[in-house]
Design a protein around this nucleic acid. Structure first.
Lengths: 253, 253
DNA sequence: CATACACCTTGACGCAACGTTAAGGTCAAG
DNA sequence: CTTGACCTTAACGTTGCGTCAAGGTGTATG
């Protein structure tokens, strides 16, 4: 069976423009072209397009997809895991945004214009502080703060005591990680203890635990620079080490 | 105090390009320009920039922000709520994607190439089906299915039996909650039984129990729409009712 | 065979929010 | 007067197409 752009487009539920674009960027080239220049696609192209659309539905960008479908030796699962890490990072971002938006909404409803002033007052103060220090450099620290704020926000409904336990555990994860890194072995006792502490720490904020989710989060620590930096400040490469340790940890269960 | 682009950029932690761009699109114009063409910003502009950056951090697009900061009569809270709606929708989308990516990963790890064929076979079949029917229409039904798949996949890594117990208990919590809500009294027997079931349900995923944590989680059910929606589908206001019930439950211990 | 009409082609601009050169003026210090 | 830091406008690049525009092709019908 042979298809022109429109036929294939209808079959796959995409526009002809999309097909031409895929041709243009070398993602999916037609089997051949007629003398008139018409693109003709065959069965192989249909199959390939299915793969492309499949990965596209997973939200991967076309460049990545090109690698996967054009090169059979390419590390598809690896790319997928990396992709998952990015998605998880995005979701954290979103959660953070939503939390802040909701805080803003309730603040506004509470005090209307007054709330405005207060909020911006705090914000402005922060700007001024940043200005009075040397500009730049401490950007990383700022990121760290945001992460902390985020955690705080999520914990907003925790008791004081719980919160102390929580931060305490967080510190123990970092300390343990510092020790574990030295072993250079993600399956070492220290590393596994770290992974376990990390799991406990998760328990504070996650309504349910799954090894898969735990691993996904660990990948995010590597994929998202904010987290990578947070753990790497313990030791260069600590984020990756933690991920590897958690990988071992979850696989052994 | 007067600022040039760079000074203001440093103050606010943004690039000079961004400031020029904001000028270009009429979002933030400098107080004046010197004869040389240099942009000069004053205190008012600093204040306005703060507002802009504040809303930007909430993920709003510049067009929306322009409305809010340039027109005091504009419905800011309304825009925020609409924005929140968009963010929540995005998160659902993301959750769907993540679920699908994880399904794909575990399928790949299971059967490698074979899994590939099956998956694409199903996908291809779908394409053909869609083609043979009138294109389009049943999109809503498809969404529903995916949401269901998502829930299942989240639990995917429990043992079969565990999973059955777990979902069973989950259902009992919901059933019990439905009854309890009718009493309109969080301290009623039914409500307290619900709280207790919920506690048991927690036992599946939490390494240890504490009343404080239990209450914290209950608060989250109200604060986080994902959970609120989940419980409210039993009955409007069920999430809040559950929280109140748990509050009583933990305080009586 | 002519004509209409659906379908094909290659450009090329537009979108969001800037990053990034490029080419060239301006300002304060030495 | 000369540096060198800082400013300007202009314009392309990014991602994945949607949307014209101008013009060639295929085929069914009068």
């Amino acid at each position: 069976m042979e298809y022109t752009v429109q036929k294939l487009g209808n079959l796959a539920g995409i526009s002809t423009r999309t097909l031409r674009y895929y041709d243009e960027i070398g993602l999916l080239k037609p089997a051949r072209k007629r003398s008139s220049g018409y693109r003709i696609y065959g069965q192989q192209e249909v199959d390939k397009l299915q793969q492309i659309l499949f990965y596209r539905e997973l939200g991967m960008d076309l460049e990545q997809i090109k690698n996967i479908v054009n090169d059979p030796s390419f590390d598809g699962p690896g790319a997928l895991k990396e992709h998952r890490g990015k998605l998880l990072a995005k979701r954290m971002q979103l959660d953070l945004l939503i939390t802040n938006v909701e805080k803003t909404i309730s603040a506004k409803e509470g005090k209307s214009v007054m709330a405005d002033k207060e909020k911006f007052h705090g914000f402005k103060q922060k700007l001024v502080d940043d200005n009075e220090r040397q500009y730049g450099e401490e950007i990383r620290g700022k990121y760290g703060d945001e992460v902390v704020d985020q955690s705080n926000a999520k914990m907003l409904h925790m008791s004081e005591e719980q919160y102390r336990e929580f931060t305490n555990l967080e510190q123990r994860v970092l300390d343990s990680l510092a020790d574990a890194v030295k072993t250079e072995d993600p399956s070492s006792d220290e590393a596994q203890r770290t992974a376990d502490l990390h799991r406990q720490w998760l328990g504070f904020t996650w309504p349910s635990y799954s090894g898969e989710a735990h691993m996904g989060l660990a990948e995010m620590y590597v994929a998202d620079e904010r987290f990578a930096v947070y753990y790497d400040k313990v030791h260069p490469g600590a984020a990756k080490f933690l991920r590897d340790a958690i990988t071992v940890y979850t696989e052994e269960k």
